[in-house]
Every structure is written in C-alpha cells, then in structure tokens.
C-alpha cells in the first residue's frame, strides 16, 4: 500500500498527516516545534507512522510545508503553507473560496479558484499581533486556559474595547482593565474583537468568495470564530482539528505529485 505524508513545521507546532491512495487520513499528529525544525519534523513523522501502523518505506512521497519546510531533508518537495492550506481547505470543504488561517505567529487570508488553486493571498508576517501567540500571552495574563477562551468569550455580557493587537501594548491594556475589575469574560471578548478587526482588513483586501473556511490553531477558539462569522455575514467552516489542515494539504499534494510522476 502506498501512503503519502505531509509535514507542516510551524512557529509553535509541527503537524504530520498521512493519507492513503483514496485521500483517507490514516494518521494525524500535532507536536510542539521547540528548538529544532528537522528534529520536530522527524519526531512528528515517526509518531504519525506509529499511529498509522506503517513503516517508512510505505511512504511513496513526503511534502514539507510551513516555515521549517526547507529544513526537512527527507521531504521530496517543499511547498508553501499558502498552497497547502488552500489544498487542505478545498479538500475538506470543496465550496471554499476564502481561507482564513491564523497560526501561532502569523495570519493569512487566501482566495481560492477552481480546484482549490490559490488565486490571491495576503499575509501578516511582520509581527505576532493578533495570532495564537497573542492569545497565549493574554490567556496566561488572565489565568485562563487557551481552550477556555472561547466559552468564556461567549459568556460575556458586555465587551470592553481593546485598542491594540500589539501583544506588548494589549498586555498593558489588559493589566489596567484587570485593575479596574472589569469582568474577565468581557476582556476576553474585547481581545477577540481586536483580533477579528485586524484579520478583517486582510479579508477585505482579498475579498470574500464562496464559502469561508478557517484553519490554524486559533480556529479552535469559538469566540473568535463567532465574531468573525458576524463580520463575514455567513457561517464559517471549521474542521474538527483545524491545526492539521496545512499538513493535510501537503499530504494531498504529495499524492497528486506522485500520480503526476506516474
């Protein structure tokens, strides 16, 4: 049996996905990237192989993506995360025209054409404002777990205004809000609003077309998704494990490439 692997080495986490000839997912793992890209890719792939109960020679082709994509010596090809998120989102939700990916350290909005091909994209990669890292810092400040942010935000009765998505400035804003005894839920909702407003300007730059799919770790935060749906004016597709969409896309491309090569 021929299998295909995709590995997405991101700034905070590394994902590996293995699919079979029919594009069925046989393994998916998420691990922290830590300090060494090659090691992270190796560890994630080994874990995925174990999960699939497969051995390395069964992998017909491996595609690497993410910031660490060039540091995977055993990958047959490196493809950018933009193309991979597009391919993954298109596979999971074929009606997808716009992909919003908010990862650990950057965010991007991708417009897809027919067949999931990237038509246009825009990125915020200059700073981690309004990304997963931003939420991690804020959650720690407010004594909440990352996975609690969504439910807490949705339980908010009001919303406080946060003027900055700069992690450093927003943190000091949160400090003063805490000092004023503003409810934690309202602060969290305000933080989510700030993220959504920032992403929204990127969404507008490439335009909304067809269905909207959100990928990346922040898509797990139902608070952000809800506010974003409000802005977009339509429901947003979120896969049950949005962090692996890039790696899935890479695996799908590995399968396509293997076919093209015969």
């Amino acid at each position: 049996m021929s299998l295909f692997a995709g590995i997405d080495i991101g700034s905070l986490s590394t994902e590996a996905v293995i699919i079979d000839q029919q594009a069925a997912m046989v393994a998916a793992v998420i691990l922290p990237t830590e300090a060494h890209s090659t090691k992270a890719a190796e560890t994630a792939l080994e874990a995925a192989l174990e999960q699939a109960g497969a051995r390395r020679p069964e992998l017909a082709r491996i595609v690497a993506t993410g910031y660490g994509r060039v540091s995977v010596p055993f990958a047959h090809k490196a493809v950018t995360e933009i193309t991979c998120h597009g391919a993954g989102a298109h596979h999971l939700f074929p009606g997808t025209g716009t992909v919003i990916d908010i990862g650990g350290q950057d965010s991007k909005v991708i417009r897809l054409g027919p067949g999931g091909k990237v038509v246009d994209f825009t990125m915020n990669d200059k700073c981690a404002a309004g990304t997963g890292r931003f939420l991690e810092v804020m959650a720690a400040k407010l004594g909440a777990g990352l996975d609690e942010l969504g439910p807490l935000s949705r339980a908010a009765r009001r919303e406080v205004a946060i003027s900055s998505v700069c992690t450093v400035f927003a943190e000091s804003e949160v400090v003063s809000l805490v000092a004023r005894n503003e409810p934690r839920e309202d602060i969290i909702r305000g933080l989510h609003r700030a993220i959504v407003n920032r992403v929204w300007s990127m969404v507008r730059a490439v335009g909304v077309e067809g269905q909207v799919t959100m990928t990346g770790g922040v898509a797990k935060n139902s608070g952000v998704v809800e506010l974003l749906e409000e802005k977009v004016g339509q429901p947003i597709n979120v896969y049950r494990e949005p962090q692996i969409v890039g790696a899935l896309g890479a695996a799908l491309l590995a399968r396509d490439q293997a076919r093209a090569l015969g």
């Binding site: 910031y67 493809v79 950018t80 933009i82 994209f121 990125m123």
Partner: peptide, 14 residues
Amino acid sequence: EEQTRTRLEAFFEA
C-alpha cells in the same frame, strides 16, 4: 528573507 521567500514561493506556485 524568510518571510519574503515564503510569499514569493507561494506566488510562484500560484
């Protein structure tokens, strides 16, 4: 360099 490379490579792929 890295961020620009990613954007350009995605552009090449598109």
